[in-house]
Simulated assay, not measured.
Amino acid sequence: MTVKELYENLKAGVNDLITSGKFHEYLKFQARFHRYSFSNSMLIFMQKPDATRVAGIKTWNSMGRRVKKGEKGIRIFAPLAVKVVNDDTGDEEWKIKGFKVVTVFDVAQTEGKPLPELARDLEGATVQGDRLYSLLKMASPVPIKFGQTGPAKGYYHPVKREIVLDAGQAGDDLTSTLLHEIIHAIVEKEPPKDEADRERAEIIAEGATYVVAKYFDLDTSCFSFGYVSAWAKGDNEKLIKLGNDIQKAAAELISRVEDAQKKSKVA
């Protein structure tokens, strides 16, 4: 299948989730959670290494959950961003003025309404996944290493220009994570400036992840559809508007992987 055809599959899969009754509840939960910076990931890990999903009291309350009595909060940084005018271009840009400390709690520290789940991790390892992982390591435009990543499966550091993967991952889930972070490395030249920028980056990264993985016979739809839908916040138009960016990023990585395949013994 072509990249365009695979993108259409992605769009159809995400649309099915968005229009399903179950997804309404999922969106209210999943869209409120986002990936954290390296510093905050490390802060979360140091204070509560078994944390999986964290949020402030107001967010948990809005999801029908309450923080258990006696639970100790996790302290992280929240940026204070301001708009400034670029002296050279005259364009408005977001600049970080400073940081403030905020308190969040892990889901295990809360009780109340059950949380819906649609996006699930890939389980086990396949021949296709192992083969793709080997090729991705050769095709990556930045160095890859394993380390502590806090609640995230991995992250791309745009300043250091490196990818760090959770040492506890394995199999097709690891392949999918590496693929996702390589797309970030290909597309992002600087950190996201605000939530809208982060939303755009995540839709492109996981959208392209699905396309590339499917192109090489690895199906990530059980995770990718839910992940993209959550970041699109139930608005399929956001995915459609980013279609060209998703296809362009996917095509570049596919080309890199195929070049790596030609230079290697990976069949």
Rank of each mutant, 00 (worst) to 15 (best):
P151L: 11
S140Y: 08
L132A: 01
D173P: 00
A152H: 00
P151Q: 02
E123V: 14
G168E: 11
D130H: 04
D173N: 13
I163G: 09
G124H: 08
Q128I: 00
A152R: 07
E123W: 05
K160N: 09
F146Y: 15
P143N: 12
Q148I: 15
T126W: 07
R161E: 15
T149F: 04
R131M: 10
D172H: 03
L174A: 03
A170H: 03
D173R: 03
V127E: 15
A125N: 07
Q148M: 14
G154H: 04
L122C: 10
G147S: 11
A139I: 11
A152K: 04
D172Q: 03
K160C: 01
E123N: 12
A170N: 05
F146R: 14
R161Y: 08
T126M: 06
D130F: 01
L136S: 10
Y155V: 04
P141R: 11
Q169T: 05
D172I: 03
V127T: 13
L165K: 02
E162P: 00
G168N: 14
Y155A: 05
A139P: 08
D166I: 03
Y133T: 01
S134L: 06
A170I: 00
L136T: 01
V142A: 12
I163A: 10
R131N: 13
A170F: 02
V142L: 09
K153A: 15
R161F: 09
P158V: 08
A139F: 11
P151R: 06
A139E: 09
F146N: 07
G124M: 06
A170W: 02
V127I: 14
P141M: 13
P158T: 07
Q148G: 03
V127F: 13
T126Q: 07
A170R: 04
G154D: 05
Q169G: 02
P141W: 13
G129Q: 04
L132E: 07
P141Q: 11
Q148V: 15
L136A: 05
P158E: 11
L165Q: 05
L132R: 05
P158L: 07
R131G: 05
A170P: 00
G154V: 09
Y133V: 01
Y133W: 06
Y156M: 06
K145S: 15
D173F: 06
I144E: 11
D121E: 14
G171H: 01
L135R: 11
L135N: 09
V164C: 08
D121C: 00
A125R: 13
V164A: 06
K145D: 14
P143T: 12
I163L: 10
T175Q: 02
L132T: 06
G129C: 06
G147F: 11
K137R: 15
L165P: 00
P141G: 12
E162C: 07
D121I: 00
V142W: 10
A167F: 12
L174N: 01
T175D: 01
A125H: 02
P143Y: 08
A139K: 04
K153T: 09
I163F: 04
A125W: 00
Y155W: 14
K137G: 02
V159I: 15
R161V: 12
